[in-house]
Amino acid sequence: MSEAPSREAPGREAPMATVWLGGCSGCHMSFMDLDERLLALAERVELGASPLSDFKDFPPADITLVEGAVANEDNLEVLRRVRARSKVLIAFGDCAVTGNVTAMRNLFAVEDVLDRAYRQSATVIAGLPLGGDGVVPRLLPRVRPIHEVVQVDHFLQGCPPDADRIFDLVLALLEGRTPEIARRFG
């Protein structure tokens, strides 16, 4: 992890990033619900990589919000790279924190899940989209919350977390305060 920036308090003008793993994008929607506060945020911090921006390789970030659980091999790889390049990493929303709905497939074997999705309920082409091209990443045996794979600095619960709390957390981090995350768990 030689390229890792130190995991200390982030600087005021550093880029902030968001990542979307195995989740429904609801947490990102909630982020958009910051509405005009996005502008206030933009004054303090540059928005680097995110599902909304175009990048080839995840650039270093001071604060990274990670939505979603670790569900496939791509999620695993992305998460490890993001962790290595982020000073502060936040589990963003219940799927990232607990696995949540994404992890409900853990009750079944991967083969059965795929079979149900791609064969039994297929309407156009029935068959697994695996192939050798690696376009569709392989599912991991089990979906995991992100802290089971990398070190997480803060946990932001909620499905999705509401905008106020996202704002409070990011602001606290930018101001170098210890964020208080008082909310019901789960």
């Binding site: 091999e73 695993l76 490890r80 045996p141 089990r142 089971e148 794979v149």
Partner: peptide, 12 residues
């Protein structure tokens, strides 16, 4: 972290 990643690719 490598250990955790290794564990994640195996059925637990």
């Amino acid at each position: 972290e490598a250990a955790a990643a290794a564990a994640a690719t195996e059925p637990a």
